[in-house]
């Protein structure tokens, strides 16, 4: 009795995810904004000519590995919260709340969309990097395996966290400002663009709390030769630590996301929706 509705919700969720992905691919503006990230990464990688200090690894490789980590991070921490806040404001969440099995289907669809977006961006970046700017690719099955698990664990660390953030942010306009600044800050201190060893120790310690540094380090271990380890803080890739920190964030993210999303869905009602539209209209935003 309980199995059929669940399977139905899964089926609806997969259908929904597929349709949303198709809409995303057909939306020129949104595709352009995703692709521009990749283009910027390739341009920057094409222009830096140095090696990573103390190694014979091109700086461009460190940059592309860092960008790869950042783009995964961005999908979870910026794109996902924005989607959630926008859809809450438009009434999508309320409509699914009023539909039997709607909320589970919604979550399934969002997971599919986010994973497809993240993996698609990663593949595109690495493939285009290798073809156009002599970018890095994993060497051997061990490196591919590392790439796979770091990507998976990295997404598990940031997607639930992003969902939790999306559940509490007030509205799309303020949401972007609230998440962009800290994300940008992390981008610069996490060793994604510049070797982390060139940062002061306190900055390194701050960066080590957040998942981005560990995602970038994990991806470097998959993409860069082992000789590049000397540019790491510990002189090694610290893969057990990468796994540990990302798992901890994943657990924390799930613990936060489940009650916060439930609360966000429970709070939705017609009058809340109208009130938000009126407020948005008063502040001159397009509705």
């Amino acid at each position: 009795m309980t199995e059929t509705p669940m399977r139905n919700a899964l089926r609806a969720g997969f259908q929904r995810g597929g349709i949303e992905l198709r809409h995303l691919l057909r939306n020129g503006k949104e595709m352009a904004s995703h692709l521009s990230n990749v283009v910027v990464a390739l341009l920057v990688a094409g222009f830096v000519g140095d090696d990573v200090p103390g190694t014979r690894t091109p700086m461009a490789h460190l940059l592309l590995a860092g960008f790869a980590a950042y783009l995964l991070f961005q999908v979870g921490m910026i794109n996902l919260p924005q989607i959630l806040v926008t859809e809450r404001e438009e009434g999508t969440l309320l409509r699914l709340r009023a539909t039997p099995g709607g909320i589970p289907a919604y979550l399934v669809a969002k997971c599919l969309l986010v994973v497809a977006l993240a993996v698609g961006t990663l593949v595109l970046l690495l493939a285009a990097g290798a073809l156009l700017v002599d970018g890095p690719l994993p060497h051997g099955p061990g490196d591919w395996l590392t790439l796979a698990w770091v990507t998976t664990l990295g997404l598990l660390a940031v997607v639930p966290l992003g969902a939790a953030v999306g559940a509490v942010l007030p509205n799309p306009r303020e949401a972007l400002a609230l998440i962009m600044l800290p994300t940008m800050g992390l981008l610069f201190i996490s060793g994604t663009m510049i070797p982390i060893t060139s940062m002061s120790v306190p900055v390194q310690q701050v960066a080590a709390v957040f998942p981005l540094k560990w995602m970038a380090q994990g991806l470097r271990s998959a993409l860069l030769p082992d000789t590049a380890r000397t540019a790491e803080v510990a002189g090694s890739w610290e893969l057990p630590m990468v796994a540990l920190v990302l798992t901890a964030w994943a657990v924390l993210g799930f613990l936060l996301a489940v009650p916060l999303l439930r609360r966000a869905a429970r709070r939705e009602s017609g009058s809340r929706l109208s009130a938000r539209h009126e407020k948005a209209a008063r502040s001159g935003a397009p509705t």
């Binding site: 139905n8 609806a12 349709i19 438009e90 409509r95 929706l273």
Partner: peptide, 24 residues
């Protein structure tokens, strides 16, 4: 439920949206 403030699923096509919600 028919509320007055719904502006959801803007990108979806009319037929596609209705067919999708029938699956629930």
């Amino acid at each position: 439920l028919v509320l007055q403030s719904w502006r959801d699923h803007r990108r979806w096509r009319v037929g596609e949206l209705l067919t999708h919600f029938a699956t629930y």
